[in-house]
C-alpha cells in the first residue's frame, strides 16, 4: 500500500522537521542564540524543499490550505494515513 519511495521521502521530512522541533524548543528559551537561529532558518529551506517535492508526488501533507491541492484530484483522502504507512 505504501511504496518504499514514499516511506523514504517521509523519513527525510521527519528528520528535517525533527531538527526544527528541537531548535524551536531550544530557541524558545534561548531566543538570543544567533547560531541556533541561523540553523533553524537554513533547515527551514531544506525542509520546505523536501515537503514540496513529496507533495508533488503523494499529495498534500498539511490540511486547510497550507499545502497545494493536486490538479483535478483531492488526494488528501486517498493517500495512506500515518498509522497505515509501512516503514
Amino acid at each position: 500500500m505504501t511504496d518504499r519511495n514514499q516511506a523514504h521521502m517521509l523519513l527525510e521530512i521527519q528528520q528535517l522537521s525533527f531538527i526544527e522541533v528541537e531548535l524551536n524548543l531550544y530557541l524558545d528559551t534561548h531566543p538570543e542564540d544567533q547560531q541556533a537561529l541561523a540553523m533553524y532558518n537554513s533547515t527551514h529551506q531544506n525542509l520546505m524543499q523536501c515537503v514540496r517535492k513529496y507533495e508533488s508526488i503523494y499529495g498534500p501533507l498539511v490540511n486547510f490550505g497550507y499545502s497545494p491541492g493536486m490538479q483535478n484530484y483531492w488526494k488528501w483522502v486517498d493517500s495512506p494515513w500515518p498509522w497505515e504507512i509501512k516503514y
Binding site: 521527519q14 500515518p82 516503514y87
Partner: peptide, 13 residues
C-alpha cells in the same frame, strides 16, 4: 492547529 499527515517518528512493530 494544522494537521500534518505524517508521524513525528516512524513506527514499526
Amino acid at each position: 492547529w494544522l494537521y500534518e499527515k505524517k508521524l513525528q517518528y516512524p513506527v514499526r512493530v
